[in-house]
Write a protein that binds this DNA or RNA. Structure first.
Length: 418
DNA sequence: ACCCCTACCGTCTGCTGACA
DNA sequence: TGTCAGCAGACGGTAGGGGT
């Protein structure tokens, strides 16, 4: 940005007319010439104008900014929140002085990822709109980053179909943009794997997980390797390949032990518990869940998942005292964390442990199931519609039973994409 | 009416080279 | 070395025109 344009920008920002800015320093006509870059004013005049506008004379160096963007991108790629915030604070004050469209687009694109890191999924809307307007002028490289981050955003919001579409475009522009960075490729494949897991496309999820894993192994990125092993474990478990699932859980466990990745150790134990529970080895499942809790002192949401699993398995074993005790803790914690979904699940098991009666029916019909339906969670809707259907079957109310079992069936069909 | 731009002309200032 | 003319560029003033 030339000094004339900079002066005009700041004058208009301060709502000053040329006359107001010029008075006592120079003539209006001469100011007009300066702003239109038709003349080069003396340093003294420029200093006086800048001082009245309260801005610095220092010109921005686009190359320096480009370098800072690159560092910022790296911090965002590595999920280094502290460094990303520090670099945002370096970059953002300079952004108003940028007139280079590519740099501005880079900034908007990086802002999408920055907001994702801050778990703010609403603010990127404006940046996305701004980029979409000038999409046809974006380079292939910038298109790659745009689609990757928007895919990432949709994933974080739980819109997996949209995420998949953008990640597909990102993969296309990754090739066209000739991007050589291995970590970028690994990150893209990992994101694709995560999305395919959510879409229950397990063959594709396994393919992209393995690609990402081999890239991260070459980068010695152990933390991510353990996360991918866990993901592969989940995929194999879902396609009933239990032995392969266990191999990957063990790898995830081994790596996380070595690098003291406590959160991952909790997740691995949780998944091993789930696996054992599936095989009806309930006692072993409980042992894994209890171990999982040892690693989850601070992660309350994850703790709720484990406590719920414990309640279910104690209930399965008819050990009602233990189930009730964990239930109490689960209800307290879910209320405290304002986790409505888990709260409803605990309430359902509360009735199951105490007594399934008319009050339970009302709670299911009027509160729990409509909530799962409204939040668009087909898994919980299917699971608990079946739960209610089975209950009606037990008490020989077959018409109601048929209604809720059909509801469960519809939800299951939605899950498997029929 | 107000703001801004532009063209044109005049003044001022600093630099350079010629000359006494 | 001092002086002076010539020149370029910075800057000011005015007028006219366009846009809102």
């Amino acid at each position: 940005m030339t000094i004339g344009s900079k002066i005009r920008y700041h004058r208009m920002k301060k709502n000053l007319t040329q006359e107001e800015l010029a008075t006592g320093i120079l003539s209006v006509s001469y100011l007009s010439k300066i702003e239109n870059n038709q003349t080069t004013a003396s340093t003294e005049v420029i200093e006086l104008l800048c001082s009245r506008l309260g801005i610095s004379l220092i010109q921005n160096d686009d190359e320096t900014l480009k370098k800072t963007f690159s560092e910022w991108n790296r911090a965002l790629l590595k999920n280094d929140c502290k460094e990303a915030i520090r670099l945002y604070e370096v970059v953002s004050p300079q952004i108003i002085d940028i007139d280079d469209v590519t740099l501005l687009n880079s900034y908007h694109i990086l802002m999408i990822r920055y907001y994702i890191l801050l778990k703010d999924y609403e603010s990127p809307r404006d940046s996305i709109r701004a980029i979409e307007k000038g999409y046809k002028n974006l380079s292939d490289k910038l298109r790659f980053y745009f689609h990757k981050f928007v895919g990432n955003l949709h994933y974080a919001r739980g819109s997996y179909e949209e995420s998949n579409q953008h990640l597909k475009d990102a993969e296309h522009y990754f090739v066209l943009g000739s991007i050589l960075d291995t970590e970028e490729k690994a990150d893209l494949f990992y994101l694709k794997a995560l999305t395919f897991v959510q879409l229950r496309k397990h063959a594709l999820a396994i393919h992209y997980s393995e690609e990402a894993l081999s890239l991260y192994q070459s980068l010695y990125h152990n933390k991510r390797c353990s996360e991918i092993h866990l993901l592969l474990g989940v995929c194999y478990r879902r396609i009933q390949n239990i032995s392969e699932a266990i191999i990957h859980y063990e790898w995830a466990n081994e790596i996380s032990k070595n690098i003291e990745y406590v959160v991952m150790r909790g997740k691995v134990e949780q998944n091993l518990g789930y696996l054992k529970s599936m095989e009806n080895r309930t006692e072993e499942a409980i042992a894994h869940y209890l171990k999982s809790l040892e690693f989850k002192h601070d992660d309350h949401d994850s703790k709720l998942t484990t406590i719920l699993a414990l309640v279910k398995d104690y209930f399965k074993l008819k050990r009602m005292d233990e189930a009730a005790s964990w239930l109490q803790e689960g209800i307290f914690l879910s209320k405290q964390q304002k986790n409505t979904e888990k709260y409803y699940e605990f309430r359902i098991y509360g009735y199951a442990v105490e007594k399934l009666d008319e009050e339970f029916e009302c709670f299911m019909k009027d509160e729990a199931l409509p909530y799962f339906e409204n939040t668009g969670n087909p898994h919980l809707l299917a699971q608990y519609s079946k739960f209610l259907g089975n209950y009606y079957q037990e008490i020989r109310k077959y018409k109601y039973a048929a209604h809720y079992l059909t509801k469960a069936n519809v939800a299951y069909e939605k899950i498997i994409g029929l």
